[in-house]
Structures are given as structure tokens and as C-alpha cells.
């Protein structure tokens, strides 16, 4: 295929919290311009995988390369990453206006001590326009719905003008229609040349939008195009534990149930 260096490369990566291995010998390559979904059951290590790529977690074995460099040595390249964290990680009653949250995406670019200038305000306006939240600009975050808030965090990631966009469970706690429009938005970013990496447990819907799926359950169970990867065998391997837990016989049926539970 193409000879361009991959945006993300994980080679034999293992991560442990204490003595518990949460990721075991994961190999993953994400080429530039991909739209990849990381799927797997709860506690499968999806978030850990993202945190490892971001350099927030140090692997005990293996090598992580983002833009061809270990996360710790990214330096200014860090600003090429737009990150949308899980929403429950922030205090949603924090007194802050939408515009100010989006501006945070410009802070690292600005550097310490410096105040936002005209270019930063313009970038914030553009980012808000892209996700269609300009009319919410002066509203406090606490006034917004889950879907609106998600767009604010997406706009903040876009304000950094990233090459790589990483989202951790962006559709947790929002309704199906909101999720769908978010996926469409992400696909439009991909079509503009952005690489998008998204953690999800929304197996069914996600596969219609992404061009790659990585199935994680401690190990990387499968990785490739959705129609190739999402077979009964893969799903059984990935959700196997839950299937046993629920004492259901028919595996594909089981996976559909697990998917519905999250909504």
C-alpha cells in the first residue's frame, strides 16, 4: 500500500496497572487519513490504549510511536493532536462559557504567559462553526445538553487545528440521532484529510462510518476493515466473557444485546 509513514504505530505494547496486565502485546498501525474505531467490551483496555498513545500511560513493554516519535518526545508536534476526553472526566457544573472552553484548544499553541490574539479568536470561531455551535458561544457549559457539550469538546480539539483527532467514547450518554450526526461529522473531517481515532462500544452503528476497526480485549483481537473484521468469531472472542456471564448460547445474538445495553 502507501509508503507514507503511519501516524500511530504500536509494536508489542503491554501495559499493566500494578500486577494486572490490561494490554498484552498489542500491535497496531494507523495510516494517515484513516478513520479507525477501537471497540471492545467494558474494561477491555480501550481507554488505556488511547492513554498509552497519548503518552499518559507508560507501557511496560514495547514501543509507541506517534508521528514517528515516542509520545514523550513529541514536543511541539503534540499540538497536532486534538483530544476529546470522556465527558465524565470534567466537572460539568464548572462555571465556564462555551467560547472559553474552545479557546483552551489554543493555549498550548500560544505558549505560557501569552494571551489569545486575533488569530486565536478566529480559530475558535472556525472550530465552533465546523460543529455548528456558534449560537451557544456565550452560554455556560452547565446549560447545555449532552450532545451539545460533546460538540463543545470536539470544537476545542478542532481549535488546535489537529492532524490527528482522538476521541474517547464520544457518544457515551447521548441519544442515537446525536451519535449518528457526530459520526457523520467525524467522517467529513476524515474526508478533509484528518486522521480520526475513536473509542466506542457502539459496534453496530460505528462500522457504517469508519474504514477500520480495532477489536480490543486486553489483546488486539482483530484489526482491519469493518466488514472483514466484524465476524462472529471475532465478536465471540472479544465479548466471550460476557456471553458466558449471561449464559446465552448464541453468540451473535449476545453481542447485539450487549450493544443495546449501552444506549
Amino acid at each position: 500500500m502507501s509508503t507514507a509513514p503511519p501516524i500511530i504505530e504500536l509494536r508489542h505494547v503491554s501495559v499493566a496497572y500494578g500486577t494486572v496486565k490490561v494490554l498484552d502485546d498489542v500491535n497496531l498501525t494507523v495510516p494517515e487519513g484513516a478513520f479507525l474505531a477501537i471497540i471492545g467490551p467494558n474494561g477491555a483496555g480501550k481507554t488505556t490504549l488511547v492513554r498509552t498513545i497519548l503518552g499518559l500511560v507508560k507501557p511496560i513493554e514495547g514501543e509507541v510511536l506517534v508521528f514517528g516519535k515516542p509520545p514523550k518526545e513529541l514536543g511541539p508536534l503534540r499540538r497536532e493532536i486534538g483530544y476529546v476526553p470522556q465527558m465524565h472526566t470534567v466537572d460539568l457544573k464548572f462555571p465556564v462559557r462555551v467560547r472559553d472552553v474552545v479557546m483552551m484548544g489554543r493555549y498550548a499553541r500560544l505558549g505560557l504567559f501569552r494571551r489569545p490574539g486575533k488569530a486565536d479568536h478566529e480559530a475558535v470561531e472556525r472550530a465552533m462553526a465546523k460543529v455548528d455551535i456558534q449560537d451557544l458561544a456565550d452560554r455556560p457549559l452547565s446549560d447545555l445538553s449532552g450532545g451539545q457539550r460533546q460538540r463543545v469538546f470536539l470544537a476545542r480539539a478542532l481549535a488546535t487545528e489537529p492532524r490527528l483527532l482522538i476521541l474517547d467514547e464520544p457518544t457515551a450518554g447521548v441519544d442515537a440521532q446525536t451519535s449518528t450526526s457526530l459520526y457523520e461529522l467525524l467522517r467529513s473531517f476524515q474526508q478533509e484529510g484528518m486522521t480520526v481515532l475513536m473509542v466506542s462500544h457502539d459496534v453496530g452503528v460505528v462500522s457504517q462510518y469508519v474504514d477500520g476497526v480495532a477489536c480490543v480485549n486486553r489483546r488486539l483481537v482483530a484489526h482491519g476493515r469493518p466488514e472483514v473484521v466484524l465476524t462472529d468469531d471475532t465478536l465471540a472472542e472479544m465479548y466471550g466473557c460476557q456471553a458466558m456471564f449471561f449464559h446465552h448460547g448464541h453468540v451473535p445474538h449476545m453481542v447485539v444485546r450487549a450493544g443495546e445495553e449501552k444506549k
Binding site: 499518559l56 511541539p76 483530544y83 470534567v90 493555549y107 476545542r156
Partner: peptide
């Protein structure tokens, strides 16, 4: 507001 994203962004 969001220490983790602050760290990811390079602060």
C-alpha cells in the same frame, strides 16, 4: 477544568 486534556495538549 480538565487537567488530562491540558497535559495532552502539551501544557
Amino acid at each position: 477544568f480538565d487537567p488530562e486534556t491540558a497535559r495532552v495538549s502539551g501544557l
